[in-house]
Design a protein around this nucleic acid. Sequence first.
RNA 1: GCCGGGGUGGCGGAACUGGUAGACGCGCCGGACUCAAAAUCCGGUUCUGGAAACAGAGUGCGGGUUCGAUUCCCGCCCCCGGCACCA
Length: 866
Amino acid sequence: MTESYNPAALEPPIRERWEASNSFHAPDRPGADSYYCLSMFPYPSGHLHMGHMRNYTISDVITRFHRMNGRPVLQPMGWDAFGLPAENAAIARGVPPAKWTRDNIAQMRDQLKALGFAIDWDRELATCDPEYYRWNQWLFLKMLERGIAYKKTGTVNWDPVDRTVLANEQVIDGKGWRTGAVVEKREIPMYYLAITEYAEDLLAALDDLDGWPERVRAMQANWIGKSVGMEITFPYAGGRLKVFTTRPDTLMGATYMAVAPEHPLARAAAERCADVAEFVQSCSTGGVSEADLAAQEKRGIDTGYTVRHPLTGTDLPVWIANYVLMGYGEGAIMAVPGHDERDFEFANKYGLPIVQVVRPEADGHVYDATEWQDWYTAKENVRLVNSGAYDGLDYEAGFEAIARALEQKDMGARRTQFRLRDWGISRQRYWGCPIPIIHCDDCGDVPVPEQDLPVTLPEDLVPDGSGSPLARREAFLACECPRCGKPARRETDTMDTFVDSSWYFMRYPCADNGRAMVDERTNAWMPVDQYIGGIEHAILHLLYARFWTRVMNELGLVEVREPFANLLTQGMVLAETWYREDESGRRTWFNPSDVEVERDARGRIESARLVADGKPVHFGGVEKMAKSKNNGVDPAALVAHYGADTIRLFSMFAAPPEQSLEWSEAGVEGAWRFLKRMWQNVHDHVAAGTPGAPATAGLSDPALEMRRRVHETIAKVGDDFGRRYTFNTAIAAVMECSNHLARFEVGSDTDLAIAREGWEALVRLIAPVTPHIAQALWQALGHEDDILAAGWPEIDEAALLQNKITVVVQVNGKVRGRIEAAPGASRDALQEQALAEENVARFVADREIRKIIVVPDKLVNIVVKT
RNA sequence: GCCGGGGUGGCGGAACUGGUAGACGCGCCGGACUCAAAAUCCGGUUCUGGAAACAGAGUGCGGGUUCGAUUCCCGCCCCCGGCACCA
């Protein structure tokens, strides 16, 4: 053992040893106690960033902890390899997306390996491999057969200059990112997956996902958005206008109708009237994202049409409103401005009538039609007013009475509506999985026969930002119709990359199977025991994966319906930002590693300057690591400087996994110092000689105390790793115990044996976090085996017993003293001892004691009259 | 705009079931070693007062429940994530 800690020399041979002995291989048939630990696979951008590093360290700690506890573990890795950034790189640099992506994968694989993750690399996969995406295509065809996949039109962002479809992130302030042209909404045919058929099941099953964070379940439930209400018909001369409402009880308060700009009635009105046509046209500019739509100012126009109220027969005007969404419900609403905030705002803006039909039972609520108040939407303890025969009914009774009246007249039906929309998977892009469809003039859209899969994506194309290059590649386009044999054209749309990520976790166990999508090995490992990834995937990816797993289950491919038993959503990685501003207010951002900070005597930041020129820079706050703020820290560079263990240690220590993590160079230094100290301490301990067998009887008080601390730490760390996933507190406990052990004075062979037991425990406790140094120290302590096989240290319950406990004494809830007591001391004894304590007695003095609360082994609170 | 989360010393964070607020680490202050510096080691460090003992205040802001609230309830402010074609 060398005297000083030298990770650069120490880490690589240990990784080679793991690789040579195939240490992280997962068996095909693992048995009942198997543990599948999965991280969200990365998009191969070329550089491993801190978010990845954090994500994979979390799962590596969990993986290694379970391995040390003797369970068969699968920790795989793969690449989410299709997507927009590869096309952007192609546009910027002229490199084919395929080459760019594969080069990036090679580079990132090396970076991952340098971090020492216990990954079974034999199961690696990339979604851009034809052997992977052929099963996307295959399952898509199965979905077509079952009617789960179907075709309809959808709205996209259209750049009129590049003549191409834009992603939402490519639309900036309603304009195209490259051309600056005002983006238009366009309707195009697309393939959809009927996830709404599964809405009820996806929602109900959330209740059983008790291994998921409550907030993720809440977000998914809100996303699915189940509403129980009614579809109500408003007849007019030319037909019937249908709306969906969750508040049929307020029907008597409906004063106008509002339809989406894309609604057939709006189109009809636009044909009759130029002003209406202009309004509808003006609604077709700007992006399609919900955030854009929801944030825009409410605007509308009267169509001139009227419909009849189904119960009163009154004529109601039909307006077109930009806040009504064609994709939800019927694309039309009955506006009840008295009790819906959006309708209220709209009615006030356009001078439409507002009628109050609900009033609270309690007094003191005055309705004001010019100012919105929260109680207007109340459903509890309210009564109907201004509603004719329905006056005086509460919400439930009003709902029921009006629902019956409508049903009798055949003007309404009870219905459950979901906010969730079907999943549009068509993308007008090149770098994705081709949709296996052939267009024939005679036969229409014909599925590619199963034996012709995969439809392979040509890999030599370079997109230029205007339209899909596939549409210009004749060799790809030209084909024969599988049904009639005539010349036909291939579909050029590719699939949403969320398709790729909806089942990759089921492919890892059987990644080498060329004949089937999944096999019995998938069933052997699924479900995933622990899934770890960013909170930003809480809704879409996780919902699509749950849906896709259900479909595979119904096709008899897998036994599970829910893919992820436990979910851990990690927080973002942040760093300080530093900038200078020029005269025009433009900011130049400097990397935190190039900035030197001066502090005052209290440790507060006083000033900061750039190391390069010594001139001042300004603090721009702590923000998510991003290129735009130049505050990214490259994990690969840090590994080269400190070694993998230090980086792993800091990123697990600085914050609990669910919270955001603030990167700090000084904090990394602290982690480095701890490892150096631990190395030195173990070195000194080994140099002191080899102890005999550990004794547990006849120990001195300090030895008993030391041993108690060690076993308390074993218990604490096991609980933190196995149950709480608070790696920061586990590491803090190891540090604390290590500090005590370093100070523990060894005066006898018995003491040396206690110290040996302590160091052997601590080295194993820290091993999941810092596996390289732990392996080296384990060997230094005289063991030849792999520390993963050494097993988790066992707790000696007898060592945990204490003969004295500190009990806090409060007077009126304020701590006034502490007493030492035997564990399990009686209430009376504690009370007596507490009152005798000097400072306590001072505060109690001769005041009247009202009561005394005793929490055994913890606290005594004496309540006195003041 | 809608949905979800967060706010504790100079900083990252701890306090797990309502029971000692600030574990552990960083930074800072003082000391040792050194010709000096770095590294390392030792001590101190929520704020205010006090030499100390100790006292008062204190977990974004305002209120409430309780013997006791960072923790539970109500109202507000600020920051962050998602919003269906970024992944």
